Amino acid sequence: MSDKPVEEMSFEEAMKELESVVDKLERGDVALDESITLYERGAKLKKRCEDELKRAEEKVALITQDGEGNPTGTRPVEGL
């Protein structure tokens, strides 16, 4: 498990760690206290991934297209 704060992780970092957390929990070979800690970390990682996906979807939605479906430009999304 990484010591990096979830809020500072890229989508890829969060997804990779989330996969690791899920693997550990599925194996079931961790103590109860560690399972709870892993579950809490996993919930934060899941939210981070969802938030990053939403931001990406919003950014893609702002790409405008011409009559032939070609991108003509983007409008900045506040906070991106």
Rank of each mutant, 00 (worst) to 15 (best):
L62S: 03
G67N: 14
Y39A: 11
M1W: 06
K24P: 02
D29V: 08
D66I: 13
V22E: 09
P71C: 05
N70T: 03
K4P: 07
E17P: 04
A31L: 15
R27D: 15
E40Y: 06
E34D: 09
M15T: 07
L53P: 04
M1E: 13
E8S: 06
L32C: 05
A14R: 06
K54M: 13
S2M: 15
E57L: 12
V21C: 00
G28A: 06
V77F: 00
E7Y: 09
L18I: 01
E7A: 15
M1Q: 07
E52Q: 06
N70S: 01
P76K: 07
E7S: 13
P71A: 04
K54F: 07
V60Q: 07
I36Y: 14
L80R: 15
E13K: 02
V6M: 09
G79L: 04
T37F: 03
L80Q: 13
T37Y: 03
Y39F: 06
V21R: 00
Q65K: 08
V22A: 13
T64N: 02
D66P: 15
K54P: 06
L25Q: 02
P5V: 03
V21G: 00
L25A: 03
S10G: 10
V22G: 09
L53K: 11
D23R: 10
L45M: 14
L38G: 06
R41E: 08
G73Q: 10
E7F: 14
T72L: 12
D66W: 11
R41Y: 06
R75F: 10
K24Q: 09
G73V: 10
V6Y: 02
E19P: 01
K44A: 03
F11H: 15
D23I: 03
T37H: 05
I36T: 12
K4A: 11
I36L: 11
Y39K: 09
K16W: 02
L45A: 05
T37A: 15
V60G: 02
G69T: 05
G79A: 02
D3F: 00
V77S: 02
V21D: 00
S2Q: 06
D33V: 06
T72A: 11
E19I: 03
S2V: 13
E34H: 05
D23G: 13
A56C: 03
L32S: 08
N70L: 03
V21T: 00
G73W: 09
K59N: 01
E52F: 00
S35E: 07
K59L: 03
P5I: 08
E17R: 04
R48K: 14
L45V: 11
S35T: 07
D51W: 00
L45G: 04
E78G: 05
E12A: 15
R48T: 14
K44E: 09
E8Q: 09
E50N: 10
E13W: 02
A43I: 14
D29M: 02
P71W: 01
D23C: 07
E7C: 14
A14P: 10
Q65H: 11
T72I: 13
P76T: 04
D29I: 04
A61G: 14
S20V: 15
L53D: 07
V77T: 05
V6H: 05
V77D: 00
V30Q: 13
G28R: 04
A56L: 06
E57A: 14
M15G: 12
T37E: 07
L18D: 00
E40D: 15
E50H: 06
M1F: 12
K24M: 15
R55F: 04
